[in-house]
Design a protein around this nucleic acid. Structure first.
Lengths: 237, 237
DNA sequence: CGGCTACTTGACTGTGGTCAATTGGTGTGG
DNA sequence: CCACACCAATTGACCACAGTCAAGTAGCCG
C-alpha cells in the first residue's frame, strides 16, 4: 500500500519514518465529500479523526436558534478532531465541509496503539494540542475581553503575518471566503462585520476592495487591535 | 530525596513508577506563596509549570481596563500551565494565588527530557491536554452562544454533579469563594451575577442562602441552562 | 433578463457592563 | 460592648455594543 501525499504533507506526520507512515496509511480511509456535508455533530462518538487532503472543513459549535461559533477552519495538510479521541468518547463540536473536499479518516483505536509504540509521534501530537489550546485561549480572550472592532483588527494583523505580507507596503489581505463565514469565526454576525469593516475604513486603517482588505495604516490597525476599549467614547450632551 | 505527597497525589503523576516519580521530585522545587501573589503574566517565558500542593491558584487573561477572564482555578493535586511549555516559549495567560498556597514548580527542560524517556507519562499528559481543550471549547460556547443566565444555570448543574450531589433532594451547592470570583469565571461581573442569581430565584429554580445555592427545581434549572435564548422574554407594553 | 446569493444599510431593542450609592457582615480597637 | 473600618454583596440608573429583523443593493450565473 502506498502512502497518500496528503498524509506525507500533513504537519502532524511530517518527518515520520516511512515505516510508520505506512502503518498510518494502512489505517486510513480517504473519501470525497460534497460541499456542505456534515461530518459529525457534537455528541457523536469520537472514534476517528481527520486529515484534510483537499478542500476545507469548518469545526463549530451550534447554539439554539442555529447561531454558530466557528472554532477552526481546517485547510489541506491539517488534521482536526484529533484531540477528541483522547478526552471522552464524544466530539465536543460539529464539523462540516465548506467545499468539495477529500478527507482521510483515521480510526482512533489502532491510532492509539500506534502512539503507544511511537513516543516521537506522541510528542508531536502533544505539541499540536498545546498550540490548539493557545488558540482557544486567544479566542476566549477575544470573546470575553475585546469588542468586535478589536477582534477584526487583530484578525487582519494575524492573517497578514500568517501570509508573511509586508504591512508597510500596503498589504492586500484576501478574506478567502464569504464575510458571513468570517463573522462567525470572530463570534459575530455578518451585519456587524460589515459595519465594523466600514468603521475601520472610516478610521483610515484599511480599505475594503471586494473580498480583499488593503492595510492602509498598520500602526492604527495595531492600536485598534490592542488598545481598544480604553476610550469610553465621550459622553453625550 | 523523598517524593512530596503532592506529586504522588497529582492526577498527572498518579500511577507513575516510583523511580520516575523520584526523577520528577528531583527536578521540582516547592515553595510557599502569600495570598494574591502573581506567579507569572501573559508573555513571560514558559520555562516551568506548577503543581498545587496546597491553596488555590487562578489562571486568567487580563484585558485593558483591568477586566479579567478566569480560565481555571487550580486546586490541590492539579497542575497548571503544563500546556504552555510545549507551544511557544511564553505563557499565554497570567496566574496568581488566591490564598496562601504551596506550589511545586517543575522546570520545562528536564521535564521534556523525562517525557522523551517516558511514553506512558506523555500519553497521560496528552489526555490531560485534551480534557483541557474540551473545557475551553465549552467556555467558548458559553461566552459566544449563551447568556449569563444559561451559563450560571449550567455552572450550578456541573458543580452539583462534580460534587455528586443529589439534585432531587434539594442539593446545597457551596459557591466556595466570593461571587466576584465566580462572576469572572463565568465571563461577567459581580453586579450581573448578583442580578442573575436573583432572577433564577424569581424563576423558582434556586434559593440563595449566603454563599450556598439551594437547588429547588432541578428540572427548571436544566431547562434554563440548555434551552435558554429561545424565549425572547415577552415584549413589554 | 430573471433569480439567486452575498452583502449592505437602516431602525430598533435587549443584554449586560459601568459607575455610584447603599446595605450587610466581620474583625479590630477603644 | 459599641464604634469604626473594611470588604463582599446588592441595588439603581444609565447606556453602548452588538444582535435581530427587514429592506434594499450588487454581483453572478443560467
Amino acid at each position: 500500500m502506498n502512502v497518500p501525499a496528503a498524509l506525507r504533507n500533513c504537519r502532524l506526520f511530517a518527518e515520520l519514518p516511512e515505516a510508520d507512515l505506512r502503518l498510518v496509511a494502512a489505517l486510513a480511509g480517504a473519501r470525497r465529500f460534497d460541499a456542505g456535508t456534515p461530518l459529525f455533530e457534537a455528541g457523536d462518538p469520537a472514534d476517528r479523526f481527520y486529515v484534510v487532503a483537499a478542500g476545507r472543513v469548518k469545526v463549530f459549535k451550534l447554539g439554539e436558534q442555529g447561531r454558530e461559533q466557528i472554532l477552526h477552519v481546517a485547510h489541506p495538510g491539517e488534521s482536526f478532531a484529533e484531540a477528541a479521541i483522547f478526552a471522552g468518547r464524544a466530539f465536543p463540536a460539529a464539523a462540516e465541509t465548506l467545499e468539495e473536499s477529500t478527507l482521510i479518516a483515521i480510526p482512533a483505536a489502532p491510532f492509539l496503539d500506534l502512539l503507544r509504540r511511537n513516543p516521537e509521534l506522541t510528542l508531536r501530537l502533544l505539541g499540536g494540542l498545546a498550540l490548539w489550546l493557545r488558540r482557544l485561549v486567544d479566542l476566549v480572550e477575544d470573546l470575553s475581553l475585546r469588542d468586535v472592532q478589536a477582534r477584526l483588527a487583530g484578525f487582519l494583523l494575524r492573517e497578514a503575518s500568517a501570509r508573511s505580507l509586508d504591512l508597510r507596503s500596503g498589504a492586500r489581505i484576501p478574506l478567502g471566503t464569504t464575510k458571513a463565514l468570517l463573522a462567525r469565526r470572530l463570534g459575530t454576525v455578518s451585519e456587524t462585520l460589515s459595519r465594523t469593516l466600514y468603521k475601520l475604513q472610516q478610521e483610515g486603517a484599511i480599505r475594503v476592495v471586494g473580498r480583499d482588505v488593503l492595510v492602509v495604516d498598520p500602526k492604527r490597525l495595531r492600536a485598534l487591535a490592542g488598545d481598544r476599549k480604553e476610550v469610553p467614547a465621550a459622553r453625550g450632551s
